[in-house]
Design a protein around this nucleic acid. Structure first.
Lengths: 225, 225
DNA sequence: TAGATTGTTAATCGATTAACAATC
DNA sequence: TAGATTGTTAATCGATTAACAATC
């Protein structure tokens, strides 16, 4: 399955961070950076940075560093950013709207070309100049426009149904914001952004800290620090 | 630093998934589940599930499985869900509003008790019955209410300033949705939800697939499958 | 040349999985 | 008891970090 060169997932999640920081450096007219610069800035080991950047072949110069411009287009290529990524979004409540107008996407060439909802109050209205279609038209429209990316921002209980229709329309990657697990054919890529996971882990750390305060008190005599 | 019992991060991100699925089972009147049930449902190895569930001591019965009810309260405790988590949110654009009304949080006891913004058009209005305050009042209000969690949904360039004020007010955990890295004292917990990372990885996989199609063609003679 | 920094190899660290004795 | 499933140990796998020769 995982054929050809395959990048470790953690690396893949760091590349966009490098990319974004590089855009900022370009803005600031910085033309060359070292792996140490990048690492210090993002809190990542410099060896890790070099490692990450060489998965598809080298791009830096020993003794010099990385040309910001070069690295940007290299990473852009790698991340598929240089392409235009056309997507549809299903569910135009607050979350859907927030995603449509999320400024962080600006550099990533995401273009949301059609909006869908099921609420008759919303279907037929316009969002950012685009008409909102009924979900029933999804398969048809997706096929016609050959859309590859589908974004799901509907309630959890609707999500699977929507995913099924996306798959039927030929969508190859689903970005799911509904708090539920989706079942799709294995050739379809799924990425779920599960906000509850974020909240729960944060909340867990708070609890942990409370517990560990006592423990640290007992501990201090032994381990110092 | 990482004192007392410490759970691996990947485990910590799976616990909320278990928790959510268990709530669903309870709803369906299922009273006992096995690690195999949980695993199959979430696409996780059953040994992994057992491992994850024993980091704070055992809860299952050999030969039987796990009592849904017991496991729910066990995980709830672990994740700090049984507490009420009071939070403030800064930035009440679409994303802020989406988070406030995100249904996935329902089980997690998150209570957003104050809203802040800087836009004079918005300050003073009400959201879900709560007045929106000016960011200038943040430190004062956070101190008075002894809030521990701050949610940042402002544009990237404002985020650090907001984080500084949260820290000054005594907030201990920050949930950051702005696409930028925040610098805070090390005792403050930060979790960043970086949507651009999600988008970029998704887009990357699409590109990879396109490339690998060719490669697979060449490959097939050798490795079959 | 001397100093800096890469790309890469080897060593370390941490997480996942397999296997199985203990237990219901 | 026989069958099922846990909790845990040991083996495997994968990612991070340290170290350094090669290169500018």
């Amino acid at each position: 399955m995982e054929r050809v060169i395959s990048i470790p997932k953690p690396t893949l999640e760091r590349l966009p961070l490098y990319y974004r920081r590089l855009l900022q450096w370009r803005e600031e007219k910085v033309s060359i950076v070292s792996s140490a610069d990048i690492g210090k800035n993002l809190g990542i080991d410099s060896a890790q940075v070099r490692r990450d950047l060489t998965y598809f072949g080298a791009v830096g110069r020993p003794g010099i560093g990385y040309k910001v411009e070069e690295l940007i287009s290299y990473l852009g290529e790698l991340l598929g950013i240089n392409n235009v990524n056309e997507a549809i979004i299903v569910g135009v409540g607050n979350l859907g709207r927030a995603i449509c107008s999320y400024p962080g996407f600006a550099p990533y060439g995401l273009s949301i070309v059609a909006f869908f909802d099921i609420d008759p109050q919303i279907v037929g209205t316009k969002i950012r100049g685009h008409e909102v279609f009924h979900v029933n038209d999804l398969i048809h429209i997706v096929k016609r426009l050959k859309i590859q990316i589908g974004i799901i921002t509907v309630p959890a209980r609707e999500a699977q149904k929507v995913a099924d229709q996306m798959v039927a329309g030929g969508i190859r990657a689903i970005w799911n914001f509904a708090p539920t697990r989706l079942h799709v054919p294995e050739e379809v890529i799924i990425r779920s952004e599960d906000l509850a996971v974020g909240l729960a882990t944060l909340s867990h750390y708070l609890v942990r800290e409370d517990l560990s305060e006592r423990a640290e008190g007992l501990d201090r005599g032994i381990s110092g620090s």
